[in-house]
Design a protein around this nucleic acid. Structure first.
Length: 702
RNA sequence: UGCCGGAUCGUCUAACGGUAGGACGGCGGACUCUGGAUCCGCUAGUCUAGGUUCGAAUCCUAGUCCGGCAACCA
């Protein structure tokens, strides 16, 4: 190990939750004891966002020698199922955490009920007999004051009697509720006499039909925490406004004082995290199930080949704060690669095969090569790989015309076959359609082992398999589930319409013989391609591999630079260039943004366009739809939010305006917007920039 | 037109009145029988305007922008 160790080697990065826990301990609260809990509702599968919470809850407990319970928040019998209870427990353990205890909020129903009776006796709660609709009505809203329910001051004895009869099942759903008597006109809506209990004649997954009244989250949660003597009740930001209620329950019930702390939930680019949306994708058949390898669920990530170590490292790295944030999914991918690089055996598989015949290698002969399973880890051992006259290489590794940076196969070029020998492409064989179907190559007989006898350097190394001595395999090439960075945030567009149609591409490939022995769950690296994980769908003799994550592909990056584009390639796609920020986020900042260089400005292609059509968009109150002639034969459609300044859009027709033509087209509810019209705001509203007669359509504006 | 939060490199995050640091990304280089891995270097930030202070990302004031809150959901 290294003696010159870095300052925070090993120490988890500090965050405000840990700081608060440290503060509490220093203040001597609870004698320094730390107890947390992870409280999922069993109505769906855990996802990577939960992983962040789990790492925090269990991590804090572990760090301070405390405990962390797994507690199912099962207070709503109509949405919860044991299937989820089992899956959640399995996921937590898979992630690497063992709960100090497993509890259910339903374990406490009896105690919760007794406390409710007490609150009524104390005059801190009452039974309300208004309808759901009326309660909502009386509650008012952010701007309208709340009004007391006529039942608010009903005698204690009457409330108590009603509560007992509610429990006894004398009333139908909705007939009565228990409400806290706090402040019917609080500026915090959560305090406007919130509901504590409602009647639900529905069987519960654990208590069956024992109960027909069920406590609400805001009531059950603080009291469950109290019963378990939780010292720090960590939850997400949206519960911040509930904290006064959390404290109220503890106060009025006179129970153990736990403290609620809130942090920002995790968002990830190119995915969705809400249970509702995940469930919808399962229901709509967009994915094959909760454990579809494209899902951000722990079950999905596991099947995809993500490791608990990678997920934990990721969760540690992203930190914990109170500001909303969206983490680049690339960071998650970085951590899987880092982990998988260490542990995955290297094997060869060809996913889109192209036949290569080594003309100077005898027909029928087989040469067994001994190849390491991990070039950086000799302890991983080796395997035998058969070399024969007819081989298969990746189609992508051959190019008819090669630029000088191309190290791979091309007519006349020499490359190395990994762990085998050097070959030169002599001849390209085509079929009737002109498709390349075979390469005829010669090998350098002195190059066995991979090095040239004369010491010449060969930069390209290709993976390959023997055509006959290889096995068939199915590879499921997964990509990001969505094609936009933040699905579901474009107005008028459903997140379901933003699903990446190429998020799963299945190919039939060939793998080296060693691959016949893999078992579901095994992870491997197919050299030069990606990490893969064996899917449970595998059958003997025909394994199925899920692509976990591609290897970094610096050739793709180089090529994109050479071509000057970043078009999505079917294979390991280069990371799409960062999209320009959404206008929403850029806002209409009056002050200039960060300084840009002249080269940035030159990226903007501004052209003169003549307005042909200008009309209001009926469904939108700020938009005009323009058709602009840019001199390229086809008018462009542009939606522009300038309607307020142009009550009569017709005045724009015939105007010469400035159009940003290389703006990424944006799909809007009303159609595709293929550019942006320059406008400036002044005293009399926003005006589009116009030009005089001299400028013609399509002229570049510099 | 209310209440509660929040704002630091492109992204995530640290700095707790005293050198704005790390990670990812990007760029450049070294090395390489994976255009992988590894290593090195560079790039880039305190929302705005005032104030307090010897000194402000940090404290104060005003503003801007973003998020959450009106289930008998959690």
């Amino acid at each position: 190990m290294n003696d010159t160790q870095k300052p925070d080697e090993g120490a988890p990065p500090s965050n405000f939750i840990r700081d608060l826990v440290v503060e509490d301990r220093q203040a001597g609260k609870h004698g320094g004891r730390v107890a947390t809990r992870f409280p999922p509702e069993p109505n769906g599968y855990l996802h990577i966002g939960h992983a962040k919470a789990i790492c925090l809850d269990f991590g804090v407990a572990r760090e301070f020698g405390g405990t962390c319970n797994l507690r199912f928040d099962d207070t709503n019998p109509t949405t919860e199922e044991t299937e989820f209870v089992d899956a959640i427990q399995a996921d937590v353990r898979w992630l690497g955490f063992e709960p100090s205890a497993v509890f259910f909020a339903s374990d406490y129903f009896e105690e919760l009920y007794r406390i409710a009776e007490r609150l009524i006796e104390q005059g801190d709660a009452y039974v309300d007999s208004l309808s759901e609709e009326q309660i909502r009505e009386h509650r008012g809203n952010y701007y309208i004051a709340g009004r007391p329910s006529p039942y608010r001051d009903r005698p204690v004895a009457e409330s108590l009697d009603l509560l007992r009869r509610m429990r006894a099942g004398e009333f139908p759903d909705g007939a009565h509720v228990v409400r806290a008597k706090i402040d019917f006109n609080s500026p915090n809506m959560n305090l406007r006499d919130p509901l504590l209990y409602r009647i639900r004649h529905a069987p519960h997954h654990r208590t069956g039909t024992t109960w027909c009244i069920y406590p609400m989250y805001d009531y059950a949660h603080p009291l469950s925490d109290a019963i378990e003597q939780i010292t720090h009740s960590i939850c997400t930001l949206e519960f911040e406004a509930h904290r006064p209620l959390y404290d109220w329950c503890i106060e009025k019930a006179g129970v153990f004082r736990s403290r609620q702390l809130e942090f920002a939930r995790l968002n990830l680019t190119y995915t969705v995290m809400s249970k509702r949306k995940l469930a919808e994708m399962v229901r709509e058949g967009v994915v094959r199930g909760w454990d579809d390898p494209r899902m951000p669920t722990l079950a999905g990530l596991r099947r995809r080949g993500y490791t608990p170590e990678a997920i934990r490292a990721f969760c540690e790295r992203i930190g914990v704060a109170k500001a909303d944030s969206t983490v680049d999914v690339g960071l998650l991918e970085y951590y899987v690669r880092e982990d998988l690089n260490r542990r995955s055996p290297r094997l060869n598989a060809v996913l889109r095969p192209l036949k290569v015949v080594i003309t100077n290698f005898p027909e029928g002969e087989v040469r067994e090569l001994d190849c390491p399973l991990h070039p950086e880890d000799p302890a991983a051992g080796s395997r035998k790989v058969p070399f024969t006259r007819t081989l298969l290489v990746e189609r992508d590794d051959f190019r008819e015309e090669a630029v000088k940076q191309w190290y791979r196969l091309a007519p006349g070029k020499e490359v190395r076959l990994r762990y085998a020998c050097l070959i030169t492409c002599d001849e390209v064989v085509r079929d009737d359609q002109g498709q390349v179907v075979e390469l005829r190559c010669t090998m350098d007989p002195g190059s066995w082992g991979g090095n040239a006898p004369d010491g010449r350097t060969v930069k390209g190394t290709l993976h390959w398999v023997s055509a006959e001595r290889s096995i068939p395999l199915e590879a499921r090439l997964y990509d990001r589930l969505f094609r936009v960075e933040e699905p579901g945030t474009t107005e008028g567009v459903s997140f379901l319409d933003e699903v990446n149609p190429d998020s799963l591409v299945t190919v039939e490939g060939r793998g080296e013989p060693w691959l016949a022995s893999v078992k579901p769950g095994d992870g491997v690296q197919f050299e030069r391609l990606a990490y893969f994980c064996v899917d449970p769908d595998s059958r003997p003799g025909r394994p199925v591999f899920n692509r976990t994550v591609t290897l970094r592909d610096s050739w793709a990056k180089l090529e994109a630079k050479l071509t000057g584009t970043q078009e999505a390639k079917p294979a390991p796609a280069p990371k799409p260039a960062k999209e320009p920020k959404k206008p929403k986020e850029k806002a209409k900042a009056p002050e200039p943004a960060a300084e840009v260089g002249i080269e940035d400005f030159q990226k903007l292609d501004l052209r003169v366009g003549v307005v042909k059509v200008a009309e209001v968009v009926p469904q939108a109150d700020k938009l005009l739809r323009l058709e602009v002639d840019l001199g390229d034969g086809r008018p462009r459609q542009v939606f522009s939010g300038i309607r307020a300044s142009y009550p009569d859009p017709a005045v724009l027709v015939g105007k010469r305006v400035a159009v940003l033509v290389n703006l990424k087209p944006r799909q809007m509810k009303f159609g595709l917007s293929e550019g942006m019209v320059l406008a400036a705001g002044g005293a009399e509203g926003v005006r589009v920039c116009t030009f005089d007669e001299g400028a013609g359509p399509g002229d570049r504006i510099t």
